[in-house]
């Protein structure tokens, strides 16, 4: 496996079924292009990032839920943005609090908000687009 291919996507959600679905979906689509890792909350996510980096992985995308026990999604993404500005952030939420989303978009240049339930290929398409931009 080439070093360049050692890329990872991290999914953060407090609902296990979401994490499992997401991982399956991403793994099925991207196969060995990415390592897909999951975390039930922000704290675990930070640990996963740390481990992956140690193992020489580059984290390209973080997909995070909005409402989570402990650190909330928006707060988590702001911190990630501060620490790893190159990581692309995608917010996935079941709640439509437009004002909060607007605020977050302004704050961390968030461009991708996926609302639950997402359509088939919705996430895949977004990621594909993002990846093509990165390649360019």
């Amino acid at each position: 496996m080439e070093e360049l291919d050692k890329r990872a996507i991290i999914c953060v959600d407090d609902e296990a079924i979401i994490l499992l679905s997401l991982k399956q979906e991403l793994k099925t689509h991207f196969r060995d292009k990415f390592l897909v890792e999951t975390a039930l909350n922000a704290d675990v996510a930070f640990k996963v990032i740390e481990k992956l980096e140690k193992s020489g992985f580059k984290i390209i995308i973080i997909i995070s839920d909005w409402l989570m026990p402990g650190m909330r999604g928006d707060e988590f993404l702001i911190k990630i943005n501060e620490k790893y500005p190159e990581i692309i952030e995608i917010l996935i939420t079941g709640q439509a609090d437009e004002q909060s989303i607007k605020n977050l978009i302004e704050k961390i240049n968030l461009q991708h908000v996926i609302r639950k339930p997402w359509y088939p290929n919705e996430i895949i398409n977004i990621i594909e687009k993002l990846l093509s931009k990165v390649v360019e």
Binding site: E15, I17, I18, L20, S21, L22, Q24, E25, T28, L67, I92, T93, G94, Q95, A96, R115, K116, P117, W118, Y119, P120, N121
Partner: peptide, 17 residues
Amino acid sequence: AHEINTPLGAIISSNNN
């Protein structure tokens, strides 16, 4: 809505997969 959207998301995603 969130409570319903979350399982729905999982269902749609899993089904497609």
